[in-house]
Design a protein around this nucleic acid. Structure first.
Lengths: 225, 225
DNA sequence: GAGTGGTCTAGACCACAGC
DNA sequence: CTGTGGTCTAGACCACTCG
């Protein structure tokens, strides 16, 4: 019910309607509206601020970043920086793993982005990111020289694409020679491979990403508390 | 508020009080009770069944197992079996990693269990499990010849210890020679190392576990949907 | 049919933010 | 001071389960 409003015109971060107004608009009681809003808050769609109002959640908050950023340093705080970033466009979605994971039709076009991440002068991660071109028009031009670390914030601000959920499939793999040139590790050393599919409001895949990460001084954290 | 009742006498799986009765007992209205119960349901403490009543959640349900079992096969369904299991008791908690993770005092005693898991005739996982002996009296005797696959179900039924939450820290490591004798893989091959701390109702650590897992035909799944 | 949870209503009062 | 969300109340009616 409330999802309809989100699809409409509102941008993330905007104030949402008052609970009282919503009750009137939908012709239901306040308690019912509160329950519906509660559910959307639980799904990180809305954020409440007592005395101020209800707002549409954004990705720039540290809380949201924590939901999507799972590799953390052992001990000291991380100093993340993006090292290298290259963008390419492909028209071959169809049979590839990326196309399947993004649930694209055979000839839909896909944007590919490669980047490495550094952590305190050490190159620790190599990522390949795939996006359905349909959702990200003029991607290369809009990216320009910017090298955003938080991609989801960038997607949201530039394209209105919000990541709500994800699946991650994690494996241990041996570094290839190519890996060892991009990540500070010897060929054959153990790397974490994280394959992620990210989904939007409506459950459509909006990003597919494969990351390889060196984990001698960091780890992937999965917490349920 | 309702936690108090759980600490009391009720066993898991038991029927819980009626919402109406709870409202009367606590001197609050039905709506308030419903909200409180909602929260406990969200935390997997209670389960509602319309028309039957509210029950204390158990670990034997497949849903609960899915919350705690993250390594899944690629494609076909898994046939899990426990291969080997050894129990040992130690009186040295203190300075060890296990002791720290279980937040034990220096001289508290710790139970150690080692086991391997097989999946379709292939040995794929080696686990070391550490338990605070205080919570698991007569562990070795009570285990007897049983080799439970679902340890959490066993903890719950035999000791009344319930796992509610966890942290998992995941790394990629190279198999040692010892690993390769327990897991079907060559020395040096990449393994997933999963370090888990499990917590009870009150947030106390009740189990610490280190697993090494071969991931050529399976992966660790982390899903937020 | 009696008892349970599931959903909803139309109010009340409080805590907090911002002018 | 006004408007917002936060919490609570005391009912109502429905859907489901089980004897």
């Amino acid at each position: 019910m409330l999802q309809r409003i989100l699809y409409g015109k509102l941008r993330r971060g905007d104030a949402f309607d008052t609970e009282g107004r919503l009750a009137a608009q939908f012709g239901v009681s306040l308690g019912t509206v509160r329950k519906a809003v509660d559910e959307l808050v639980a799904q990180n769609v809305l954020v409440r601020h007592q005395g101020r109002g209800t707002f549409i959640a954004t990705h720039d908050s540290t809380a949201a970043a924590r939901l999507h950023f799972h590799v953390v340093g052992r001990g000291r705080t991380p100093g993340v920086a993006v090292f290298r970033q290259a963008v390419e466009r492909r028209n071959q979605a169809g049979e590839s793993k990326q196309g399947k994971n993004l649930k694209l039709s055979l000839r839909a076009s896909v944007i590919e982005m490669r980047r490495t991440k550094s952590w305190a002068d050490e190159s620790i991660m190599f990522e390949r990111v795939y996006l359905p071109a349909r959702l990200f028009p003029n991607f290369k031009r809009r990216l320009g020289q910017a090298r955003p670390v938080l991609l989801y914030e960038f997607y949201e601000q530039e394209f209105g694409v919000s990541v709500m959920n994800f699946d991650e499939r994690i494996r241990a793999v041996a570094a290839t020679k190519a890996d060892s040139e991009l990540i500070d590790c010897a060929p054959g050393c153990a790397l974490l491979e994280i394959e992620r599919t990210a989904y939007g409001y409506d459950g459509t895949p909006v990003e597919f990403r494969i990351s390889r990460c060196e984990t001698r001084r960091r780890y992937y954290l999965h917490s349920r508390r």
